[in-house]
Nucleic acid binder design. Structure first.
Length: 289
DNA sequence: CCGACGTCCTGCTAGC
DNA sequence: TGCTAGCAGGACGTCG
């Protein structure tokens, strides 16, 4: 499940390979992605040259020389890799962008939660992202985070998944950051103290930075732009470690559902207040109907 | 307005 | 051994 560190790894891997490539054609697969590729976009992109590849949150933007931009999202299982046009095709391919060089960019996505979008101008894309994304973790300030958390009574875990509060954090790094900050995921966002907010912000930056250093976490299908898997999953303290001993205190890691997502935490290292405990303890596991 | 929950999608796997 | 229900979750729509 690509989050900021995985997307950053893909961008760093791909940027040298895609930059200055001149597009000769687009091939679109029979199954639509989250957004349907419009045939006229192919005409817009053909003959244009890629200027680069940058990341914002979990999105990747690919500016073109004529002023348009492509916007990519890997969803859950998206993969972007560069191949010779003649290379054998994998299954679940949804888009191939062919270049004058004889190479092409391939977008593969098993679960089709990903998307590729065309924007006629950078200003339109700026506006699209501005209404969906808050600050990058590295740019986030204590006062920004405090103001955003003050506005909501949602569990802090749910707030961290909100891309308008901080861009790029997903389920894995939200759990890891909360562990590092010694905060239980159930704690209402507006009940964090100023010190807890600082610790949480530092924890987010720490886990994101170290995950980027490890080329992200490979849980199921994730690979970087070079096709290499990540290694940060070996550093996970709580995510995916239900019933396993906490690496700090050996207490069994708990798993609860918050905001519809599995949330892993150590009940010893991330103690809940008595009030929160009483409110959430009975709801250990919820089935969906 | 806010927050909780459902939806999409496919591969894997726990459990019978 | 074979079948299937359930689970994984990012973004977004809907409902109370």
């Amino acid at each position: 499940m690509p989050e900021l560190p995985e997307v950053e790894t893909v961008v760093r891997d791909l940027r040298p390979a895609v930059s200055q490539q001149r597009v000769t054609g687009i091939w679109v697969g029979p199954h639509s992605l989250r957004r349907i590729w419009q045939p006229e976009w192919s005409e817009q992109v053909a003959g244009d040259t890629i200027l680069g590849l940058t990341r914002r949150g979990k999105w990747m933007r690919m500016p073109m020389q004529r002023g348009g931009e492509l916007l990519w999202h890997l969803g859950m299982t998206g993969q972007m890799t560069v191949h010779a046009i003649s290379d054998p095709l994998a299954d679940h391919l949804h888009l191939r962008m062919q270049w004058e060089s004889g190479h092409e960019l391939r977008f593969r996505d098993i679960r089709r939660f990903g998307s590729v979008d065309w924007f006629a101008s950078s200003a339109q894309l700026d506006a699209f992202l501005a209404e969906r994304l808050g600050p990058e973790p590295f740019d986030l300030t204590d006062s920004q985070l405090a103001a955003a958390l003050q506005r909501t009574t949602r569990p802090i875990k749910a707030a961290l998944l909100d891309q308008l509060i901080v861009a790029g954090v997903g389920n894995i790094y939200a759990d890891e950051a909360l562990f590092r900050a010694h905060l239980p995921p159930q704690k209402p966002a507006n009940q964090l103290t100023a010190d807890e907010i600082t610790q949480l912000r530092l924890a987010i930056v720490h886990v994101i930075e170290h995950a980027i250093d490890g080329r992200g976490s490979t849980i199921r299908n994730y690979v970087g732009g070079s096709g290499l898997e990540g290694s940060y999953q070996d550093e996970h303290q709580v995510y995916g470690r239900t019933d396993q001993p906490c690496r700090n205190c050996a207490t069994a890691i708990h798993c609860v559902r918050i905001a519809g997502r599995s949330s892993h935490y150590c009940p010893q290292c991330q103690p809940e207040s008595l009030a929160v405990q009483a409110a959430t303890a009975p709801a250990k596991r919820k089935r969906r109907g």
